[in-house]
Every structure is written in structure tokens, then in C-alpha cells.
Amino acid sequence: PARSAEQYCSLPPPMNIHFESSNMKNVLHWSPPEGVGDGVFYRVKYLVYGENKWIKKSECQNIDRTWCDLSSDTYDHEKQYYASVKAFLEGNCSSWAETERFNPLTDTQIDPPAVTVSSTEKSISIVLTAPEKWKRTPEDKSVPLVHIYSVLQYNVSVLNKKTNKKWWFSIKSNTLIVPRLESNTVYCISVQTHVRIPRLFSGFSEESCIATLKDPNAEHA
């Protein structure tokens, strides 16, 4: 008969169980139990901290992969969560392995903003679009992270590709005009999102490069 989940289990538990979170898309990951071969399958459950019941994640029962997307179950970023995984192999089972308490607000990795640049002869203007919280469906209303984190700013680097000179700007708004540049010169811009409370940093965006326009007077000189 199939072994009931709570009976004696001697299989070692799954290892390194943790959430990997990006813009609050929260995916549970783990490693197989030590020293077991193929054929292991897993069951996942989760709990909202402070509520008194564990909830089976229906899409992650008897699975053989080592991840489970709990984004919709942990969507409320004002709550905290635990998740737990149990391994099964040939009628044997493991104890439940549990994550640390997961707080979507502080334990997520945020993206850099989207960067749009345009130029004139002597200046470059930069428009930033804040990263958004993960959406359950494409039709869901977008929630920019700037609406969640009250103290969010951007660190902007501007590199003159001719002289290799670099400037840094720290801005709260999502637009920046860099004046008094050299005409007919390529500049490359890279931007990082920085949440000051709680302290979160994104990586830097890919370089967006643009040339300032030629100075018409210079041609006739």
C-alpha cells in the first residue's frame, strides 16, 4: 500500500531549499537528497507566516523537477512565507525540508530600469522606465516597483567613448538631461535601480550608446 506521508521516512531530505526571486516572481528551488539516484519525486507545500495551515501546491505534487513556481501563492508582498519539500523514492520518503522565512519585499532581486536615450548636438536626454512587479496574467494591472518602495532612485553612469571619461548621477526622477557634451561623439549610458529602504540594488542595465549630433558650424569652419 502507498506509504502515508506522515509515516516513518528514512530518505535524506532535499537540500539547499530556497526562494529565487526576481521582481517578486518567487520560484522555489532545491537540490536532490544526498546520495540518491534517479527516480526521486517531490511534493511541495507552503505556509503564510502566522496562519495555521500548510497548503499543498497542487501543481507541484509528485514532480521530478527541482523547482516550483510559487509566485501567485506568495503574491501578497506584505506577508511572509515558508515553503517545504518532501522527497519520495521507491516507497521510501524523507522528512520535510523547509526554507527560511521568505519576505518578498526584502528578499527579491530587482531589475535595472528600461533606458531610452536621445541626443542633440551638445546634450543627451535619458528616460527611465521603472521595473515592474511580476504579474499573474499579462492582463493584470502593472505595478511599478516605485509604487511599492517609497525610497527608490537610479544610479546613472555616462561614458564618453572617445576620452573614456565617466560621470555618475544619482536621480529620483525618471528623466535626466546631460548638458555641455562634445558634438559628434559617442556616449554610453548604464543605469542601476537602487532601493534605499530596504537596501536593494539591481545590476546595471546593458549599455545604451548614442552619438551627439554633428555641429554644422564646425563643418564650415
Binding site: E51, K79, T106, P198
Partner: peptide, 24 residues
């Protein structure tokens, strides 16, 4: 905040009662 972040996992691991909350 930084001080708490450094000890958060240590302190929360000592709290084995997952199903109740003081503040929430």
C-alpha cells in the same frame, strides 16, 4: 534595518512556531 538583516535568518530560525504571529 542593516543590523536586523544581518541576524534575521539566525533569529527567525529560533522561532519554530510558524503558525502564529505577534504583529500580523
Amino acid at each position: 534595518r542593516t543590523g536586523f538583516t544581518a541576524i534575521k535568518a539566525n533569529i527567525q530560525a529560533r522561532d519554530t512556531v510558524r503558525t502564529t504571529s505577534i504583529l500580523s
